[in-house]
Design a binder for these strands. Structure first.
Lengths: 181, 181
DNA sequence: TGAAATCATTTTAAACCTAAAATAATTTCG
DNA sequence: CGAAATTATTTTAGGTTTAAAATGATTTCA
């Protein structure tokens, strides 16, 4: 299971995409990460529904608005949450009905809809955010602060690697990996 | 940003759920993990669609069947993939149409439907799985084997902590955390 | 045997997501 | 000015997911 710390230098320096077979470790890592994310996400969905009768997309959208003092446009929110504009429109529709969000055309650019939390929306979000933070802490309760810090740092590296790989591909992968295929 | 390695023993031993405020580190860790998972998942979805004209749920389902020599029931698959039975039924319907999966009642228990990959399904899955493994390796390409091993190990701890917290809650949380609320 | 309970699956309804097309407002530039 | 291009949003259609209710098959046990 453990990666030997005496791995040959060749292995350490060879990009994974250049070795032909054996990428099982990366695959196992991804499957484990996926398991963790899925468990957390579905637990949070359950608790939001049971305790606040709301959904994760609604919570996430309100969280974005709460961070912005001047409000956000539909497009900004959709980029931030990595979902489509149409989806933001639909989720906002529900929040408008419940009086949690306010939508109005921008002063300078009347194409743009500016979204803000209402006073009621801010109160509701504050209550949910506090509980949410507690739930996450509970879920990670068996980990010490050192482990949490280490994970945060390592996942920073993962994030950078992902951005690298994804942008490479979206252009024309002008790297060695591209030549071999 | 870094957690000092000389953190007082009290901190290391205090359960996160027993401290009142400050759970920001856990929250930041979760948000970063979610970012990584979402990036990977949507990249894999895109590539499966572009290169194989299929979807992630189909791929995941075929992966389960491929691992089992004797076939699996709808219920087993739904547990494994953490989705509903109804969902499995629907995804299987598509795979049946394409001749990738076979469905037949079990010999001993005629309530149960046994799912297996067809010969064509096995061939198709083999091709996809090879590419999939390569994609994952590309996405993690900037990480060394030591980092991958470390992450895998730490996420094992996360997984254990999640199971702990979730099962505690589903019974009656007979822990100290329960008393305080 | 046969009624009740249990287990597995299917059906249904509602919410959500995406992609593509349609609509609306603004900017650019002749 | 005003047509064309751009930008932002909404609408539409198709597909996926979940939860809950309904259905079907088997087991238990009096």
């Amino acid at each position: 299971m453990e990666i030997p710390s005496t791995a040959p230098l060749l292995d350490r320096e060879t990009k994974a995409s250049e070795r032909p077979g054996d990428h099982k470790d990366e695959l196992r890592l991804w499957l484990r990460m996926l398991t963790c994310s899925t468990l957390i996400e579905s637990e949070i969905r359950t608790r939001l529904r049971e305790e606040f009768k709301t959904t994760l997309p609604r919570f996430d959208l309100m969280a974005q608005l709460e961070k912005s003092t001047t409000g956000m446009t539909v497009g900004e929110v959709s980029q931030r949450l990595m979902v489509s504009n149409g989806n933001v429109t639909a989720v906002v529709a529900g929040l408008l009905t419940d009086g949690l969000v306010d939508k109005r055309p921008a002063a300078q650019d009347r194409r743009v809809q500016v979204l803000t939390l209402t006073a009621q929306g801010r109160r509701a979000f504050k209550a949910m955010a506090e509980r949410h933070e507690g739930w996450i802490a509970e879920l990670f309760a068996d980990l010490g602060p050192a482990e949490i810090g280490q994970l945060f740092r390592l996942l920073g590296g993962v994030k950078a690697s992902l951005h690298q790989a994804i942008s490479n591909r979206q252009n024309g992968t002008p790297t060695a990996a591209g030549e071999t295929e």
